Structures are given as C-alpha cells and as structure tokens.
Amino acid sequence: MKRSKSCLSSWRIIDMMSLADGSRYSVGKRPNGKIFHALADPTRCAVVERLCLGPASTTELAQPFKMALPSFTQHLKVLEDAGLVASQKEGRTRLYKLTPEPMYEAEDWMAAQRTLWEKRLDRLQVYVERLESS
C-alpha cells in the first residue's frame, strides 16, 4: 500500500507544536522506527536483556530459544539493523554486544512525548473542572 505524498510530508513536518497557552513544545528528534520494531518482539527483547550482562556468541544467545539457528540469526539481524547490537567475528565465532545509544534516543523521545501528553491531560482536567463548576 502506497502512502500519499501529503501523508508523508505531514508526518515529517511536526517538529514544534503550539500549545493552547501559546507556548511552543518541541517533540524532539524522532527516533529510528526500527528500534521500536526490533523491541516489539519478545525474543529480541530477551536477547537485549541478555546482552546487558555482556557480549555473547550467536550460539550462546540462541541456546534458551526453541528455534532453528537460521531463524534466530534473523532476529539478530533485525537488532543489528536497528543499531541496538553490533557484531564482530572472532575466528569462527560471531560475538554480539549491546550498543545502547539508539535506546537513549528512543528514551529521550518518549520522555518528550510524556511531557507533551501530561500537559495536554492537565489542560483537559482544567477544562472539565470548569465545565463541572458552571
């Protein structure tokens, strides 16, 4: 399914938003969508959690999962494409390690979203209270 040009352009123009009180709010740099896609899968989340303990080989990472190694390496590729892990070959073994920088980017974006929505909900509460009191 193709997206229309106007849909794509309107998706990207939101950098600063005006709040009802006239102040401006920056939604921040939008993180790479691949990060959220990679973390949406429980297998990949478990791999990231394991890599928090330190680097590990492909077979070591695959050991707790009941799937074929080629299927498991596809999960590792998704994590690597998202920038969440990095790999290097040492002899016949491929070692993976966590690269947390993309998660910091996503965390900053989510914190900005939380602030935005908390302000919106506060304004909604004030509005509802005003309606109830009149």
Rank of each mutant, 00 (worst) to 15 (best):
134 S>N: 12
45 C>H: 05
61 L>P: 00
111 A>G: 02
122 D>H: 13
58 T>V: 11
76 L>W: 05
21 D>I: 04
17 M>G: 12
43 T>C: 12
22 G>S: 10
104 Y>H: 14
18 S>Y: 07
126 V>M: 07
33 G>V: 09
1 M>K: 08
76 L>K: 05
107 E>C: 09
80 E>K: 09
62 A>P: 00
128 V>W: 08
46 A>W: 04
1 M>Y: 14
7 C>R: 11
19 L>P: 05
57 S>K: 05
129 E>Y: 01
109 W>H: 13
13 I>K: 15
73 T>S: 05
31 P>T: 00
20 A>D: 14
130 R>Y: 04
85 V>R: 01
65 F>C: 03
100 P>C: 09
40 A>C: 04
108 D>I: 06
133 S>F: 05
98 L>G: 07
104 Y>M: 15
38 A>V: 05
92 R>P: 02
88 Q>E: 14
98 L>W: 11
106 A>H: 07
119 K>Y: 12
17 M>R: 08
27 V>C: 09
41 D>Y: 08
100 P>W: 08
69 L>I: 13
14 I>T: 14
53 L>V: 06
79 L>F: 02
103 M>S: 06
21 D>P: 01
1 M>G: 14
95 L>V: 07
131 L>V: 08
101 E>A: 15
66 K>V: 15
62 A>Q: 04
118 E>D: 11
76 L>S: 03
102 P>C: 12
21 D>K: 00
23 S>N: 09
95 L>E: 12
110 M>I: 12
52 C>W: 14
58 T>E: 14
3 R>P: 07
70 P>M: 03
61 L>C: 02
103 M>C: 10
32 N>L: 05
7 C>N: 09
17 M>N: 06
22 G>N: 08
46 A>H: 06
